[in-house]
């Protein structure tokens, strides 16, 4: 292939699926660089995906939002079983989720939670079930995996990072880790794919360019234009920000009047 073609293929607007037709159903993640790693070009439907993370706020939900938003418009439901905090409706709506298709389930006990997850997965009325289960044995996980298969539902389990060492029948297992400037995904298991890869993802901007994972701090030298991570910006809206000094990492405190938060917005 010549350079021009390479150049073209690197365009963020162009999606390539690694396999022409996946043998298993997938849900496009909405992130080109993520789809490039996920076998079949997306999250595996009718299976469990495990998201392991230790803190909140790492982008562990935003990672799934483009896919969930799409599923919520498919006529089926998105169920959340036992969310640890309030799933904040205005933000979810901003991510494109159809709130009228969201079902919140608040079980009072762990055993009830597991039962509710299984029911929701098995019923076939939910396109996706997000769950925050407590301790799960391998047998329980397998039950959930079977329920997801029989209900044709995408099950997403959020579990602590310490679970990384335990075996699991989930189709995809990934660890989400914080990074001073974004989110790093570590693929612990990919059914039909190669695990062990790492990806640094700007979860706020679906379909952006791949950034290589670097061990050193990102160089934010003067003159370098960075795309700011606006939380929950609409895809397609990017805010220009003046370059930041590397040795001035924080806003001065107490804060003087800063310009209005709705800065200069430009349609890409």
């Amino acid at each position: 292939m010549n350079d021009a073609l390479h150049e073209l293929l690197r365009q963020p607007g162009i999606w390539r699926t690694t396999h022409a037709t996946p043998e298993f159903p997938v849900i496009p993640s909405g992130f080109a660089e993520l789809d490039a790693i996920l076998p079949g070009g997306g999250w595996q439907d009718r299976a469990l995906t495990e998201v392991l993370h230790d803190q909140s706020g790492l982008g562990e939900l935003r990672l799934l939002m483009p896919a969930l938003a799409r599923l919520s418009h498919s006529g089926r439901w998105v169920a959340m079983v036992g969310p640890p905090n309030i799933p904040y409706a205005p933000a979810l709506a901003a991510q494109g989720l159809d709130l009228s298709r969201v079902l919140l389930v608040h079980p009072r006990r762990d055993s009830d939670a597991l039962w509710a997850v299984e029911q929701a997965l098995r019923s076939g009325t939910c396109a996706a079930v997000l769950a925050w289960p407590g301790q799960l044995s391998n047998r329980q996980l397998r039950r959930l995996q079977l329920a997801a298969e029989s209900g044709a539902t995408w099950g997403i389990l959020f579990r602590p990072g310490a679970m990384a060492g335990h075996a699991s029948p989930a189709a995809i297992r990934l660890r989400v880790q914080g990074h001073p400037s974004g989110t790093t995904l570590e693929f612990l298991k990919l059914r039909n794919g190669n695990a062990g890869q790492k990806l640094q993802l700007d979860v706020n901007h679906p379909r952006t360019r791949v950034l290589p994972v670097t061990t050193e701090k990102p160089a934010g030298g003067p003159g370098l234009r960075t795309v700011s991570s606006i939380p929950h910006a609409h895809p397609g809206l990017v805010r220009e920000q003046p370059p930041r000094e590397p040795d001035r990492p924080q806003l001065p405190l107490p804060l003087e009047e800063t310009p209005g938060r709705r800065g200069h917005l430009r349609l890409v």
């Binding site: 969310p83 905090n85 929950h232």
Partner: peptide, 12 residues
């Protein structure tokens, strides 16, 4: 369903 993109997904 009123969207507000400047809000977090989790509220305490």
């Amino acid at each position: 369903q009123q969207a507000n993109p400047y809000r977090p997904l989790w509220l305490l």
